[in-house]
Simulated assay, not measured.
Amino acid sequence: MRWIENVGRFVFGAECLGCGKPSRNLDPWLCPECVAELERESTVELSPGPDTYSLFPMRPLTRKLVHALKYKGISGVATYLVKHSSSVRCGVVREELSLFPKPLYFVPVPLHRARYRERGYNQAEKIAAALAVVFGGKVCRWLRRRTFVVSQTKLSKEQRERNVAYAFERVLKEVPALGTVVVVDDVFTTGATTSACLAAFGRDFPLPLKVCTLLYDEPASAAADYAADNRIEWDV
């Protein structure tokens, strides 16, 4: 019953979004052990593609956090992950963004209005807002989704590309004279979605175009190497 659950939360603490264990030391979503794991994950160097930056690799912990951001209504996870990224604090993302022509225009990958009604917010926009606070600049809704596409989660690379081809259009009428556009999304897998967004700006778009995502879903070989490394560490 609900009252038993509430008493349990009061006595034992709320559940950690990472390990699922009750804790009275959440910060506010992770226990100290999961916070330490998240910090370790944030030091992984990621190279999803040219002019593309990701803050964390896709791991069980980071996957759960983005799942909470997208499907559990915990929008504050976007700011939480940005603040906990060592790449943002002192790594390659900070170094690269400091060199881009200013101002920075953070453009979130748009949601179709049906998905927006279902979710209540656009998670990419929450991430863009967190990045804009850290680096300066502003969030700009310069793209619009023209079609409602099915979820990319279980599609192959070719299916993903077909699924989002021509799904976006530029709604920016007057292009600024200076600055850099940073397209923002939650996860980079094959790059199909962000590539479609970049294509929507057009080949003759005069400003530099970059991509930044929270997570990079690495190829299977990289994930297998990571799992093997962890097994070796535990065996030792």
Rank of each mutant, 00 (worst) to 15 (best):
L209S: 01
L172H: 03
T194L: 12
S156I: 09
D186W: 01
V181M: 07
V187M: 04
E218D: 10
L214K: 01
L214A: 01
V150W: 08
Q159S: 01
K157V: 10
T194E: 10
C140I: 15
L209I: 05
V184F: 15
S221H: 09
E158V: 02
E169K: 13
K173P: 11
V211G: 02
C197S: 00
V181N: 02
T147V: 13
S195E: 11
P219I: 06
G136H: 00
F188T: 12
N230L: 11
R170Y: 12
V181Y: 07
E169V: 14
A165R: 11
F148V: 10
V149M: 01
R146Y: 09
D204E: 03
P219H: 07
V187D: 06
G191I: 05
T153C: 06
S156P: 12
E161R: 11
R170L: 13
Y166V: 14
F205N: 05
V187G: 04
V164S: 06
G137C: 03
G137N: 04
Y226V: 03
A220Y: 11
F201E: 00
K138R: 14
A196G: 08
R203F: 10
K138Y: 09
L209P: 03
S156L: 05
K173F: 12
A199G: 03
A200G: 02
A192N: 10
Q152T: 05
E174S: 06
T194V: 14
T213Q: 04
D225W: 11
L155Y: 10
D204C: 02
L172Q: 08
T189K: 05
A165T: 09
P208Y: 03
A196N: 01
G136S: 03
G137Q: 02
Y226Q: 05
K138A: 14
A192K: 06
S151Y: 04
E169N: 13
R145A: 05
F188V: 13
T213D: 02
R231L: 06
D204P: 01
V187F: 06
E218Q: 15
A165L: 08
A224V: 03
N230A: 11
E169L: 14
V150T: 13
V149L: 05
R144E: 15
S221C: 04
L178S: 10
C197H: 00
C197G: 00
G179M: 07
V182D: 12
T153Y: 04
T153S: 06
V150P: 07
T213M: 02
V184M: 15
R231P: 01
V171C: 12
V175D: 04
I232D: 09
A220E: 15
P206H: 03
R141Q: 00
I232S: 10
K157M: 04
L178R: 13
F201H: 01
T190I: 09
N163D: 11
D229I: 00
A177S: 14
V149Y: 08
V211N: 00
D186Q: 03
R162N: 12
T194D: 03
K157N: 02
V211K: 05
A228M: 03
V139Y: 11
P176G: 02
A196D: 00
V175E: 05
K154M: 03
R170E: 12
